[in-house]
Amino acid sequence: MERRFSPTLLTILCLGITVLYLPILVLIAFSFNASPLVNVWGGFSTAWYFQLLHNRQLLQAALLSLEVAVTASTAAVVLGTMAAIALVRFARFRGRLLLTGMVNAPLVMPEIITGITQLLLFVSMLQMFGWPHRGFTTIVLSHVAFCSAYVTITVQSRLQTADRSLEEAAMDLGSGPARAFLEITLPILMPAILSSWLLSFTLSLDDLVISSFVSGPGASTLPMVIYSKVKLGVSPDVNALASLIICAVGACVISAGYFMRRADQRRALEMQMAER
């Protein structure tokens, strides 16, 4: 097939990519602006970054968000992988359709509906069982629910393309199904599991709407604090914080992608060697 780009196509592609990146680049540039005025360039300065270190409210919120994100994404990876195994490997079971629906729906469900319904659940549960109190626990529970959906989708597609012959060979050689799965299939799934952990982590770290509904007094996550600051107008220290977050996440995603591709290539090479 011809690999010719028409000029129109190329222009639209470049335009689209510019639209996606220009705002972020401008934001990062202005985070180094010495002037507190948002439209005047007052020279280069890193003052806003140092000011972040003294903002207790922001630091506390960042800590809470990190704790939530680590807990929620770890739990989501476990549950989501289990759901993926169930959906791909077990052809028929009661509740299969229900599970399929429940892992696909959170991807398109408007957050505001998820948030409001989950809050009503937590409030009713607290009335009935005296648990959970709104705060860390409820934020984690609701994050696990939507993150595990993303994990299931990612791991599911990897599991579908995974070669089953190795696992079958291991079982023919006498391994039990559980052991064959742990030693053969799990390593093949590892890149998908790691990338879905990372995805869950960033989604949890970023969530504003659901957290705002289910959190209680005193538990403000980083997006909640950022939102309330941004609502009041553009502020230079939010620029600095945003640049830090965007660069850290970007670096993580790019390096994770690089290492996973290398691991995949090595595995493919080993398979070729083994076949010879």
Partner: peptide
């Protein structure tokens, strides 16, 4: 961009 914060 999908990985970087929506809010930001």
């Amino acid at each position: 961009p999908f990985w970087t914060s929506f809010l930001l």
